[in-house]
């Protein structure tokens, strides 16, 4: 049995239709028409203890709706959820004690007070024993470098510092599961890297199960063994990232810079997809020809100045899945 079990989960919202014009406005005072928005439709998955799962999808795909249902602040329209044996919306407070939640776009810290005060407040709220609190603070300060801004008011922190403080705050009470909603949004490269290292570390050292939503594919590449891809409220893919790469990553692009003009350029096993002066973009499939074979062929006819091989980007692969589904042909263009 998984730590998190989601079965045939759906969430439909009733949205009041706005009627046009003055007459419509008056009519809607007395009678409102509603339309149903299906935010999540028949989603099922299970997450095991110790996993790091990336929950991915375009804006409005239903990511946040799912996270909200898992945390218990949203009631499903139908289907079942169990988080460590608890039905979240029925025992929201009990569930709150075993999960940590970070929403990248908002903070759980007290804006006007030094950061440490928010930690102390959470210590009381979750009744963390003194010794455990000190241990956790020591560990988090160590990895996240909280020490440099513990006594600075939250409103004066940089976004990176605030996110670090927020994630530490969500872990003070030793949750079993950590939900991260866009934990790296808006961070610079260094801050992102630091955040990822920390997430990896608490997963490895403490066995905390992590579910994270993100738009940054490098988060997924560096953190998640598994990803669940959703779009329009449905699961499009659930599995290893490696499999996606396997399936859609066979095609690569070889970029060659030639000495002199290349006329009537053609090479067996590769297609020219772009040409700019002396620079050629060649698409080839790993199954048919190797990169070195290609380079050999080319160098027999032309003088090569420089060579680059581009791996397909995950973003591109994923966009492809959104557009064509898992079974669609991998005929996307590299960008």
């Amino acid at each position: 049995m998984g730590l998190i079990e989601v079965n045939h989960l759906s969430k439909h919202y009733q949205i009041a239709k706005r009627q046009e014009g003055l007459g419509g406005a008056l009519r809607s005072l007395f009678h409102r028409e509603y339309m149903t928005k299906m935010a999540v439709q028949d989603i099922s998955f299970a997450v095991n203890r110790g996993e790091v799962v990336g929950y991915i999808g375009p804006n409005g795909a239903g990511k946040s709706t799912t996270i909200k249902m898992l945390t218990g602040i949203l009631v499903p329209t139908s289907g079942e959820i169990r988080v460590n044996g608890i039905i979240p919306f029925k025992e929201r407070q009990k569930n709150a004690r075993q999960i940590g939640v970070v929403f990248g776009q908002r903070t759980q810290l007290w804006w006007d007070l030094p950061t440490i005060e928010s930690f102390e407040l959470l210590k009381q709220v979750f009744e963390v024993p003194d010794q455990r609190y000190r241990q956790n603070m020591a560990t988090f300060s160590d990895i996240l470098g909280l020490g440099e801004f513990l006594y600075t008011p939250v409103r004066q922190l940089s976004l990176g510092q605030r996110m670090r403080a927020d994630i530490a705050a969500s872990l003070l009470h030793d949750p079993v599961i950590l939900f991260l909603d866009e934990p790296t949004i808006g961070l610079d490269v260094v801050a992102k890297e630091r955040m990822r290292t920390f997430i990896k570390e608490i997963n490895r050292e403490r066995g905390v199960t992590v579910i994270l939503t993100t738009h940054d594919m490098s988060d997924i590449e560096k953190l998640c063994q598994r990803m669940i891809l959703i779009d329009k409220g449905r699961v499009m893919y659930d599995g290893e990232l490696a499999k996606i790469k396997e399936r859609f990553g066979k095609e690569r692009v070889l970029i060659v810079d030639l000495e002199g003009e290349a006329t009537d350029f053609s090479i067996a096993g590769a297609a020219v997809i772009k040409q700019e002066g002396n620079r050629m973009w060649l698409r080839f499939s790993r199954d048919e020809v190797t990169a070195s074979q290609l380079i050999n062929q080319i160098s027999e006819k032309y003088e090569i100045k420089d060579v680059t091989i581009k791996d397909p980007e995950i973003d591109v692969m994923i966009r492809h899945i959104y557009e064509k589904g898992m079974d669609g042909q991998a005929d996307y263009q590299q960008e």
Binding site: I73, F103, Q108, F126
Partner: peptide, 13 residues
């Protein structure tokens, strides 16, 4: 309006 109250429902109080 900002949804801060909804977030506080994630707390055991």
């Amino acid at each position: 309006r900002t949804g801060d109250i909804a977030m506080e429902m994630l707390r055991p109080y």
